[in-house]
């Protein structure tokens, strides 16, 4: 593996770990409830009415 490849792999690993940490924080803060509440009601703005 060359230097570019190694750097890319390192950045990718950092991003994956950071992503997983952010998701965990979000789940602990019950942010998925807001996503759920928004997604189960017809979004009038999204369909061009509201």
């Amino acid at each position: 593996m060359d230097n570019t490849g190694r750097t890319a792999a390192l950045i990718r690993a950092v991003l994956i770990i950071t992503g997983a940490i952010l998701i965990t924080i979000g789940i602990l803060g019950k942010e998925y409830v807001s996503v759920f509440n928004k997604a189960v009601r017809i979004c009038l703005e999204c369909i061009g009415i509201g």
Binding site: L15, I16, A20, L22, I23, I25
Partner: peptide, 28 residues
């Protein structure tokens, strides 16, 4: 849609869940 909703209604809170999901999808 979720990112806009999180940014628009979270009262200034960082959208951890949606951004983390997007970051994971992006990196993988």
């Amino acid at each position: 849609g979720s990112l806009q909703a999180a940014l628009g209604t979270s009262g200034g809170r960082f959208p951890f869940y949606v951004l983390g999901t997007l970051m994971l999808f992006g990196a993988v």
